[in-house]
Structures are given as C-alpha cells and as structure tokens.
C-alpha cells in the first residue's frame, strides 16, 4: 500500500511536467516580484529611484563584512580537503554505513556535503561516472547532494553579514539537519529505487 503510494507520488513528481511548471514559476517569480514591488511603491508615492539607491548602498558594506568569516571557514575546509584526511574519516566511519545499508562509496558525499558544495558535486559526478547515474549509488549520491545546503558556507555568510561570531547551538542544529537529511535520503532511496 505505502509502496504503491510512494511509487505513484514519485511518478507524479518526477514527471517532466512538474519540472516544467516549477521552472516556469521560477522564471516568472523575479519579474513578477520586481513588477509588484516597484509598482506598489510608486503608487504609494515612494521615491523609487532615490530609495533604491539608498538601499543599494548597503550592498557593498554587507559583502565586505562577510570576508573575514568566509576566509576563516573556507581556509580551514580547503586545508582539510587538501590534506587527504577525508579518506581516513571514511575508513573510520565505514563500519557504520553497513548498519543503515548505505553503500560505503556514498559516505564521502555525505561527509563533504556540509563542508563544500563544489567538492561534493565533484564526488557525485565521479561516482556517477564510475557506477552510472542510474545505479543505486548514483541515485543516492544525487539525492544526498540535493538534500541540504553547504552548512558551514551558509553559516559564515549569514552570520558574517550580521557580525555574529558566537554561534551558540547553530552549528549543532545545522549538522543535525545534515545528518537527518542523509538518513532520510538512504531510507527513501531504498524504498523507491530498491
């Protein structure tokens, strides 16, 4: 019963029509937003040009403010990746992957996901090249890639913009989300792709 339902849901969502509709909405969203915001502003007698320039001024400050935070995070992650330590971490954690019936090959994808978006994409591409995009490994790797954002990058940029250095439980919350995302990806891929 649940199997039939999930299969039907997958078929509906994986249909190119769904993608076409979503892409259509995405393409129209920004022109629509610009139209409504500028028009409503103008009708309500906002001096649109002057106010725009006034707001845009902050863009430079925000971008500059982020730099130290982003340098700190990206340097540490870049060094970690270059050292080859990821390989050791995979060896260390691989016994755990069998427990949840996760192919050991996809573990680096899960471990890299919170650290580096481009790094993860590299691993996913490599896996799909070796095993084929329609293999279980290829599908699971693709799903894990789409399951969360690059936690440390988002943290550096968002908190950097606000000048937040003491992040309290933010890292833990983000990593719990990443962990659950990987678990959920393994679970749903096992059900749908077998």
């Amino acid at each position: 019963m649940i199997d039939t339902l999930t299969t039907a849901a997958t078929a509906a969502v994986s249909d190119p029509l769904f993608t076409t509709i979503m892409k259509g909405i995405s393409n129209l969203a920004i022109p629509f937003l610009l139209f409504v915001i500028v028009l409503v502003g103008f009708i309500r007698k906002v001096k649109v040009y002057e106010v725009f320039v006034d707001g845009a001024k902050e863009g430079f400050d925000v971008a500059i403010r982020i730099i130290p935070y982003l340098v700190a995070i990206l340097v540490a992650i870049g060094m970690f990746r270059a050292s080859g330590a990821m390989h050791w971490l995979v060896v260390l954690l691989s016994p755990a992957t069998d427990l949840i019936s996760m192919p050991a090959e996809t573990l680096p994808v899960a471990l890299m996901r919170p650290l580096s978006g481009s790094g993860t994409l590299g691993i996913v591409t490599e896996l799909m090249n070796t095993h084929g995009p329609d293999s279980f490994i290829g599908r699971l790797a693709s799903t894990i890639f789409g399951s969360t954002e690059t936690t440390f990058y988002v943290l550096a940029v968002y908190f950097g913009a606000a000048g937040i250095r003491k992040s309290r439980h933010a890292v833990a919350s983000g990593l719990i989300g990443d962990f659950v995302g990987v678990m959920a990806a393994v679970f749903i891929c096992r059900i749908i792709f077998g």
Partner: peptide
C-alpha cells in the same frame, strides 16, 4: 552523463530535504 531519467531524484530529494529542514 546519460541518465535515462535525470529527474527521478526530484521526489527523493524533496523527501530528504524536507526531513532535513524539519530536523534542523
């Protein structure tokens, strides 16, 4: 890379990312 259905990971991705979001 020549997938027969490149879009088939959309539904699994929505499921996994929704779980991740709720968890976070």
């Amino acid at each position: 890379l020549g997938s027969a259905n490149p879009f088939e990971i959309i539904s699994t991705g929505i499921f996994a990312s929704t779980c991740a979001c709720i968890a976070a």
